[in-house]
């Protein structure tokens, strides 16, 4: 089994950085741009409790490109002005990277998301693991599937943005 090249790892890390940076500036177009353009691209954010029991119910379940785009529409157009603003800082580090099928890479990372509501102090929103399948496109690495499995049994607030 061929190990990922340094260039491949570099592209994966650049993608993780772009993903965290987009969410941390509430840039949903930037978030969407981290995903492959194929219809099969998807994002799932699920409680570890459900994941461990093979229960499919998630907190966010975008199983196709169109759903990803609809999530952006809801956050930027439908919900605008209805929620208390909060900003995040994603702390992400890669814990594993191995070849997946058809030239993809299967990447795992730990994440912690610090949250600061407008006018409030900083607390932890969630911690967990990203389990990603990354495709290397000409323009750089993109997520074919991103799965955020959060350990946080009870989330400390309602959620607007993806993890």
């Amino acid at each position: 089994m061929a190990m990922p090249s340094d260039a491949g790892l570099g592209a994966v890390d650049a993608l993780q950085q772009a993903y965290a940076a987009a969410l941390d500036r509430a840039d949903m177009a930037g978030w969407l741009a981290c995903f492959a353009t194929t219809e099969a691209a998807g994002y799932v954010c699920i409680a570890a409790e459900n994941d461990a029991r093979d229960l499919g119910l998630a907190l966010m379940l975008d199983d196709c490109r169109a759903r990803l785009e609809d999530r952006v529409t809801f956050i930027t157009q439908v919900w605008a002005g209805t929620f208390q603003a909060y900003r995040t800082r994603h702390l992400v580090y890669r814990t594993g990277c191995r070849p997946g099928p058809d030239g993809t890479l299967d990447v795992t990372s730990n994440f912690a998301i610090m949250m600061t509501p407008e006018g409030g102090s900083t607390t932890v929103l969630a911690a967990g693991e990203y389990r990603d399948r990354v495709v290397l496109e000409a323009r750089g690495a993109r997520f074919l599937h991103k799965r955020a499995v959060y350990d946080t049994t009870v989330l400390p607030r309602y959620v607007v943005y993806p993890f």
């Binding site: 499919g56 998630a58 379940l61 919900w79 209805t82 929620f83 208390q84």
Partner: peptide
């Protein structure tokens, strides 16, 4: 049911996230 339930009515649901914001306010 799984994809609709995951996205529609919970604390991050497309038609319920706003409710959650109201509770706190």
């Amino acid at each position: 049911r799984i994809r609709q339930s995951s996205n529609l009515l919970g604390p991050c649901g497309v038609i319920s996230m706003e409710d959650a914001a109201i509770f706190q306010r």
